[in-house]
Structure formats: structure tokens, C-alpha cells
């Protein structure tokens, strides 16, 4: 129905390339992204290590591929979880109105009271080094945006003559969702989902960067940057790699979301 723009296609292509890299590298280059080899520390790209090695002599190409899998995996899981919950509750609030709406809005307002990263930080502090606070925290932050956007659209759709007509013509709630709500919600869900995934990638990297996220030696983009930062002078090309990857990931997702400003 809605034709994607050129920018959106570019975003999809870029994301597919990154995913292909992340999934293809382990097939082509066997090895362990956490295996250290101090004699091979900070090798420049080329030779047996196509993208060079880090300060512990670990293979950058393997580490980057693993880090992208981790970032995209978390992003996919959290946006999917948040999306399903957020859209379902948003439609419920918008279509039902009344106390259901007020109660759900209350929950959303409560979560919005605290900046997202603070919430994630507090959850991570409870169980350091584990994954569940990351998933839970990021999902908690993301579902609110789905909820708010979906609810606003659902309120408008629920009040529209088209939905009233469907009800009078004898159609049930499933039909109304499929024919009236979903066609309008789908593009919103895509936009929020792409932005949400970008937020997730950024949050995980930020947590890694301040050392409270995923624990070493698991490769993670933010953590790789902080580890490589001391060597900006000796190995700028190695430090540039995780930075470039985060940039491309978020750029791809922002392009998919369209040129909008959230």
C-alpha cells in the first residue's frame, strides 16, 4: 500500500548487508572471537586478519560479526517484544477508552517519568553482567513509544465514521482490526520499530561504553570502543571499525524509519 521511499530502500539494503556480514563471517572464517593471542596484538588490516586485531590479538572481523549479531539480536528481540505489547495495549486503550485507557496511560506516564537510560542502568545494577535486565529495561523504554503512537492513531480511527459504519454493518472486532486499524497502524509500527531498534543499538553501546553493559570478553560494540580508545594513535583504523559499524547500523535503521524526526 505505502510505497517505500528511496531512502527506506537504501536503509533496508544497508541493514541486509550488515546482517549478511554478521551471519556470513562465521561460516567463511572459522575461529573464536574471544581467543587472545598477545603476539598478534594490534595488527593492521590485511593478511590472515582481514580487519586486523585488537590489543589482545583477537580477530576484529570475528569480533565485529559477533558484536553485530549481539546488537541486532537484542534490538530485534526488544522491539518485537515492545511492539507486540505496545501495539496491543495502544489499540486496547484507544478503542476502549474509559478506565482502561486511563489505567494504561497511567502506567505509560509512570515509565516516562524517568529517562530511559536511567531505568536501564538501575535494572542492570540489580543483575550486573546478565542479559535479562538489558532486554527488560530496553523493552520497558520502547513499548511506551509504540503505545503512545498506536493509542493516538487508534483514538482517531475508533472515532471515525468508517469504524462506526463497520460496526453498524455487522462486522466484529477482528474484522475492524484487520481492515481499519492495522492498515493505518502498520506504517506507524514500522517507523516506531526502526527508531526503537536504533535506540536499542545505541543504548546497548552506551552501556558497554560506560562499562556496565555486556561483560567482557563477549564482543560488544561500545565496549570495543572503550577498549580500543587508548590506542587511537597506534591503531586508528582498528578503533574506527566499531564506530563505523554503530554508525551504519543506526543510519540504516533511521533511513528505514524515513526522514522524520521521531
Amino acid at each position: 500500500m505505502i510505497r517505500p521511499s528511496r531512502g527506506q530502500w537504501a536503509g533496508v539494503a544497508l541493514l541486509l548487508l550488515l546482517a549478511l556480514f554478521a551471519l556470513g563471517v562465521p561460516q567463511l572464517i572459522p575461529g573464536d572471537p574471544t581467543r587472545q593471542s598477545l603476539s598478534n596484538a594490534l595488527l593492521p588490516p590485511g593478511g590472515p586478519f582481514p580487519l586486523g586485531t585488537d590489543a589482545f590479538g583477537r580477530d576484529m572481523v570475528l569480533r565485529l560479526a559477533a558484536a553485530i549479531r549481539l546488537s541486532l539480536g537484542i534490538a530485534l528481540l526488544t522491539t518485537a517484544l515492545a511492539g507486540v505489547i505496545g501495539v496491543a495495549l495502544g489499540v486496547l486503550a484507544g478503542a476502549c477508552g474509559g478506565w482502561v485507557d486511563r489505567a494504561l496511560c497511567g502506567v505509560a506516564d509512570t515509565l516516562l517519568a524517568l529517562p530511559g537510560l536511567l531505568l536501564v542502568l538501575l535494572l542492570v545494577a540489580i543483575a550486573p553482567g546478565q542479559f535479562w535486565p538489558l532486554y527488560l529495561g530496553v523493552s520497558l523504554v520502547l513499548w511506551v513509544e509504540y503505545f503512545r503512537m498506536t493509542r493516538a492513531a487508534a483514538l482517531r480511527i475508533a472515532a471515525s465514521p468508517a469504524v462506526e459504519a463497520s460496526r453498524l454493518l455487522g462486522f466484529g472486532p477482528v474484522y475492524r482490526f484487520r481492515r481499519h486499524y492495522w492498515p493505518e497502524l502498520a506504517p506507524i509500527t514500522l517507523t516506531v520499530g526502526a527508531f526503537g531498534s536504533a535506540t536499542s543499538v545505541m543504548s546497548v553501546a552506551a552501556l558497554g561504553f560506560v562499562n556496565v553493559g555486556v561483560r567482557p570478553p563477549t564482543p560488544e560494540l561500545g565496549q570495543m570502543m572503550i577498549e580500543l580508545m587508548p590506542y587511537y594513535n597506534e591503531a586508528p583504523l582498528i578503533l574506527a571499525q566499531p564506530i563505523l559499524v554503530v554508525f551504519l547500523l543506526v543510519l540504516a535503521l533511521n533511513l528505514i524509519a524515513g526522514g522524520k524526526t521521531q
Partner: peptide, 27 residues
């Protein structure tokens, strides 16, 4: 079901993405 209504703004009373054939077919 036999008490029906016709609205003021015709485009607002139809699901915008469905062709009329689909909408009538559904009915």
C-alpha cells in the same frame, strides 16, 4: 442490522485502503 446510517463525509466512512469491490465483498 436493518437500522443503518449514511455519513456526511463519504471518504471518512470507508476504510481508505480497501477497494470498493473488497469492501462490498467482505459485506
Amino acid at each position: 442490522l436493518r437500522f443503518q446510517k449514511v455519513w456526511q463525509d463519504p471518504p471518512a466512512a470507508f476504510a481508505p485502503q480497501l477497494t470498493l469491490r473488497t469492501a462490498l465483498g467482505d459485506l
